[in-house]
Structures are given as C-alpha cells and as structure tokens.
C-alpha cells in the first residue's frame, strides 16, 4: 500500500491551537502563509538564526514565550525566555552575546511573580554570559492577555565557521541526541493540569552552549544541530529530511528516556519523541566522527547521557523511520493533532 499524501491542512479559516504545536500545522503555517512573503536570495532557508547581514559573523534570532503556568518545577518563563533564545543561537554555531526582552503583561499579574520571573531571567543571563541591552514593557487589560508573555531577541557571534544546514547531511551520518527527552513538556503539562502523576518530573531547561560548543572541534564533520523544543525530537528529525533525498532511521531502544517520562507518557498515551524539551539538542555528525562527538558530550554535565540513536539513510528519502525493540519498523511523523498548547 502506498503512503497517503499528506494534505495541506492550513485551509482553516482561523488560527487553531494546533498551529502553535510545533508539529505539521506550525510548519505549514510558516511555510505557506508567512515565509514566502519574506524570502530573499540571501536568506533562502528557514533556520533558527540568520546573519545580521549577508556574510556577517553576527547572528540574530527571536522567540516568543507564552508558557502556562509561568512557574513549574525546574524552571519558569524568565529562564525559558533567556535559555530558549540563546540555545537557538548556540545550535547555529554562535555564542550568545546580547539580548532584548519585551514583556506583555496582563493587568492584575502579581508584582511578586513578575519580580520572580525577572530575577530568574537575570540569573540565566549571567550564567550564559550575555547582556540584556534593551527591552520593552506593555500592559494589556485584564482578560485580554495571558498573564505574562515574553519575546526575547538575541544576537550571537559565530564561533563555528563550517555551514550547519540540513542540506549538509549525507548517507551514513550519525544522529546524536544530547540527553533524555520529554521532561520539559510533561512537567509543564503536569503542573498546568494538576495531573495525579508526574510529581517527580522537572523541566530540563538549560543553557546548551557549553555542550554544543564542545562539538565545534569536529569541524566539517559536524553537519547540523537543532534544539528539540516544540514538537520534540520527532519534529526536528522530520524537518531535517523534509524535501531531502535522505531519510533517517532511528532505533527505539537507543533513545534516551528517563523512567519517569516513560511512565507518564505511557499513562497519557504520549510519545516521548514528540514532547518539547528545553535542554536537549539533536546533532548530525559524519560517519566515523560519532565517538569523538560522544566523548566530547559525555565530558559535559548536560551531555552525560548523550547517545547515538540512528543514521541518515538514502533508503527512505524524506522520511523518518524507527526500528522497534522487536525489530519492526514504523514511521515517525511530525507530531499531529496534539492538544498540548502553551508549553514554552
């Protein structure tokens, strides 16, 4: 039987929550309704960060944070707004240098909570070694906002001079996941929905630069990196191979997943591969460079549990397949139809 053609699903008359899930609908929204209006020869690809001007060593990225609740075990919206934006720069091969923070605050939001979130953001900024150089605050009437929203924009200096792009991947390249997946999204979900399970979960939100930069010595053997945020590892892997002549085959058994995450996912019928992370990235490295990459990551606190989980393959162009524990094969698709809004 033939695989079905995946339909254009953005014929919706209005924005739906799924458009923000980081899965298929998010991707299609950006590709169909937004990116075509801004595409240019100098910036033909959708990447996490772009150069300030063509050829510049300064990279720019931006991200919005709407996580609900704003505080949860392991992190909060302030930390996310700093780490998330800096991580986009890091996986693009740049060291974060400065940031802007724009706050949209709803009338009635507790001052104490605002202080707490900003103190936490300031700690994260110090840890990363960047500076906040500008910002903005807006207040919207009660009921017209969502508590606290933060948009942060970051600039970083390119420290890795080889191209990092999905187009650089080659058959046989190894696929590495930097640490256990699924903790952040489940933690936020458990905190928001007061789930009777998942009490021991903590967000993995962290500054990825030290672990990412430990891979820079790989040079041209380092092909591509991306932090596995919304849509999780599934979305990242599908983005890497979408429209490519290459595919990816991963092994279920090799994916690092903590027992807590596995248990809660089992109870809720969720896949750890589809859940947002804030301290995990995926790296594609040339065949033969895997052990050097793993040794470098294992020397970093965040990369202790890094694993080689699969390979780039010419056998399944444009698709991601998983080999299961009993030796079967299944498709790993973009996450679809998930009801997990406001996770970051």
């Amino acid at each position: 039987m033939r695989e079905p053609e995946k339909s254009p699903v953005n014929q919706a008359a209005a924005i739906r929550l799924e458009h923000g899930s980081g899965g298929a609908m998010s991707r299609e929204l950006v590709e169909n309704a937004i990116f075509p209006l801004f595409r240019s020869d100098a910036f033909p690809e959708l990447l996490d960060a772009g150069a300030l001007e063509a050829g510049s060593d300064l990279l720019l990225t931006t991200d919005g944070y709407v996580v609900d609740p704003p505080f949860f075990p392991g992190a909060d919206i302030g930390k996310l707004a700093v780490y998330g934006t800096c991580n986009d720069l890091s996986v693009s091969g740049a060291r974060p240098t400065c940031l802007s923070l724009a706050l949209i605050i709803e009338e009635g939001f507790p001052m104490e909570d605002l202080r707490r979130a900003m103190t936490s953001a300031a700690e994260a900024v110090r840890e990363v070694g960047a500076k906040v150089v500008t910002g903005d605050t807006k207040v919207v009437p009660r009921g017209k906002g969502g508590g606290l929203f933060i948009t942060s924009t970051g600039v970083g200096r390119r420290m890795f001079s080889y191209p990092l792009s999905p187009r650089a991947i080659q058959a046989g390249d190894g696929l590495i996941i930097s640490g256990p997946v699924g903790a952040h999204g489940l933690t936020v979900l458990a905190a928001r929905e007061s789930l009777p399970v998942g009490g021991s979960l903590r967000s993995d939100a962290a500054n990825l630069y030290p672990a990412v930069s430990s891979l820079f010595p790989l040079g041209s053997s380092l092909r591509f990196m991306r932090d596995a945020t919304r849509g999780g590892v599934s979305a990242v892997l599908n983005e890497i191979v979408q429209g490519s002549r290459m595919g990816i085959i991963v092994e279920d058994e090799a994916i690092p997943v903590s027992d807590d995450v596995r248990t809660v996912c089992g109870l809720l019928g969720l896949s750890p591969l589809e859940i947002a992370n804030e301290g995990v990235f995926v790296a594609v490295v040339a065949a033969g460079a895997e052990s050097q990459a793993l040794a470098a990551l294992h020397a970093q606190p965040l990369g202790r549990d890094a694993r080689l989980v699969g390979r780039v393959s010419a056998d399944c162009p444009g698709r991601v397949l998983a080999t299961t524990r009993v030796g079967g094969t299944r498709v790993v698709d973009f996450p679809r139809g998930l009801l997990l809004p406001r996770i970051c």
């Binding site: 695989e3 298929a24 679809r336």
Partner: peptide
C-alpha cells in the same frame, strides 16, 4: 478521505 480530507489535525 484517508490522509487527504481526513487527517489527525482535521479529522
């Protein structure tokens, strides 16, 4: 309808 008009995003 499978995979065309009918998907998990728009069942």
């Amino acid at each position: 309808l499978f995979g065309k008009r009918c998907t998990p995003d728009d069942p």
